[in-house]
Amino acid sequence: MHNDYTITHLKQLESEAIYILRETAAQFEKPVLLFSGGKDSIVMAHLARKAFWPAKLPFQLLHVDTGHNFPETMEFRDKYVEELGAELVVGSVQKAIDEGKVVEEKGARASRNGLQTVALLEALEEGQYDAALGGGRRDEEKARAKERFFSHRDAFGQWDPKNQRPELWNIFNGRKQHGEHFRVFPLSNWTEMDIWQYIKAEEIELPHLYFSHERDCFVRDGVIMGVTDFIELLPDEKVEKMVVRFRTIGDATCTGACLSSANNLDDIIDEVAAARQTERGTRADDKRSETAMEDRKKQGYF
């Protein structure tokens, strides 16, 4: 059914994302690409390489570091950035805590996820960035389903869902007042499945956490968590060895794993196709309330 002038869905999504990345470089003075070392940001960095090849990326990478990372992610991040020949800036939640700008949550269930917002806004201001490219996708969460490609933030970094600019055809309005900035989401129209299919088609390398491995884990609120130095166990929680992989990689204190023996891309794609839980179903931070994501986004979260 494909004639000469039809392209696959992956090529369409790639073309769209490259178009957005180039619009961002052209419309803003100092954009930055948010890079966490997770699969979405790796795909975005890969697309950015393609968009500007054979030149280097016309922007820096920024990692907002909660300090609660899986060590594998950090090793991968540093190696990837070096190969890319890009410049990495790190915004630190630990630093914001040390400087007294935020107060850390207390107790066994403490998470630094909310504090990331402060560190992110600080880093954006310090670097004088006027656009931050993020790997957010509309299929991830219901509050994201109405997010724009070019998402306007006021001078306080806040998102107003009722006052978003309409986006038609492929015309994106990035005009802004002094002090305002934009979040830009080139992967808006991708789903988790598209991401995995693209990783396979483009042979993109990923951190090992995404593939099945044996790890010390415990179960909290029905979510499997990896044992790290940053999490205090509750009295009734037991550590067990489990064969798991991670569907998303975020702050280690709130990113859950799933039992899985998928150790290659084909098995992961099959697993995603058969999955009956959304990817964010393993994210404890979204479970706090029905509109938890919208509330965090209004404050400036990604």
């Binding site: 219901k142 869902p161 029905e290």
Partner: peptide, 26 residues
């Protein structure tokens, strides 16, 4: 209807983008 105002008022305010795929098409 993901936005708080929409859930409260039981209306759809904005364009919502939804995704699904079959083996033939996305």
């Amino acid at each position: 209807d993901g936005l708080r105002a929409e859930r409260e008022q039981g209306i759809t305010i904005d364009v919502a983008y939804r995704y699904f795929a079959t083996p033939k098409r996305k």
